[in-house]
Amino acid sequence: MPVQYYIFLSIALFCIGVMGVLMRRNAIIIFMCIELMLNAVNLLLVAFSKMWADAGRIDAAAAQIFVFFIMVVAAAEVAVGLAIIVMVYRNTHSVDINILNRLKN
């Protein structure tokens, strides 16, 4: 399949993620949208890796290693993020980010 398909797919996923982050109000959903963004990037990286490998770059696997690192970091972020969300939930019984405006005043 041509690499463009992957690019379009990834960009589409990425944009969905971005839109979700900007428009949704539920912390968990926002969080999932962020994960979607990361995974769109992963997909794109792999597609590009394949593309450059076909083009004869010998170090094209680096992009796949990059994906590994993204996954690891994303996992670390998930751990921290979920912990934070749980903490907030336990204190406020809500994960809606609209009620988080104590700091505004």
């Binding site: 996992a75 979920l82 749980v86």
Partner: peptide, 23 residues
């Protein structure tokens, strides 16, 4: 209702260690 935090902790630890295993 919220279940014991221990389960949740296990899940998080799994996520962390599992990515290490992936390596």
């Amino acid at each position: 209702q919220p279940v014991a935090i221990k389960y949740f902790l296990t899940a998080i630890l799994f996520v962390l260690f599992d990515v290490e295993v992936i390596f």
